[in-house]
């Protein structure tokens, strides 16, 4: 109690400087204290920033010139992605040889598995083991519409008429269909646990792919 009194006593004393306004509302009274200086400073600072921001980003070409606008940053990201992406894989075509080559390329498979996770798992399940009544198991040696690697690409790109297999080329572009096909080719024979029973016909062996010797 005594410390409390002391505390309040101290601060009470420091209040002597505060000028109390005359008015009284239901017992509530107000001091005529000035607004803190830092309050003014920050308020003016935000107002100045507002003017500066609008000038840089909207009322002058500065924002775009310095690459600061969302537009400029987006364009830079797109460019960076294009530069870093698929060039190292060589020509992306949907012929058998290319598909088989990609199906053993780590970079292509990493890309392909990401596309698979984005576009295919809704019907083929995250482990590619298939979903009852929808996509078949992609990890066994059977194919419903597929006998060759190119069939896989065609199924992905153009879909299968009158089934739940939708055409992807319109949606994600040819390159991505090729990479997804390469990934699916690589899944064959992994026979994931809990996968769906085989559907369709047994598929012939994939054609052998021999990397060219350096």
């Amino acid at each position: 109690m005594s410390t409390n009194q002391k505390k309040s006593g101290n601060s009470e004393a420091s209040h002597q400087a505060d000028k109390l306004m005359v008015h009284d509302y239901d017992g509530i009274r107000e001091y005529d204290n000035p607004i803190p200086g830092w309050w003014h400073a920050i308020f003016l600072g935000t107002a100045l920033f507002a003017v500066l921001y609008l000038v840089v980003f909207h009322l002058s070409p500065l924002g775009n010139a310095l690459g600061l606008t969302a537009q400029a940053r987006y364009a830079a990201a797109v460019e960076k992605d294009a530069a870093s992406s698929l060039a190292q894989l060589g020509l992306l075509t949907s012929d058998e040889a290319t598909l088989m080559r990609l199906s053993t390329d780590d970079f292509a498979l990493s890309k392909g598995s990401a596309i698979f996770a984005a576009s295919c798992i809704a019907c083929h399940s995250s482990n590619a083991g298939g979903v009852v009544g929808l996509g078949p198991n992609l990890t066994d040696d059977y194919g419903k519409n597929v006998k060759t690697p190119e069939d896989i690409f065609n199924t992905i790109a153009h879909g299968i008429e009158a089934t739940a297999m939708t055409a992807q080329q319109q949606q994600i572009g040819e390159d991505n269909c090729i990479l997804a096909a390469a990934y699916v080719i690589s899944l064959r024979g992994t026979n994931v646990a809990g996968g769906k029973d085989p559907e369709g016909e047994p598929m012939p062996q994939w054609p052998a792919y021999a990397p060219e010797e350096e």
């Binding site: 505060d18 109390l20 306004m21 009274r29 001091y31 005529d32 204290n33 000035p34």
Partner: peptide
């Protein structure tokens, strides 16, 4: 207690 600052409340 008394309200700290009338002027602040206006602004």
């Amino acid at each position: 207690r008394q309200v700290y600052s009338y002027r602040l409340s206006i602004v």
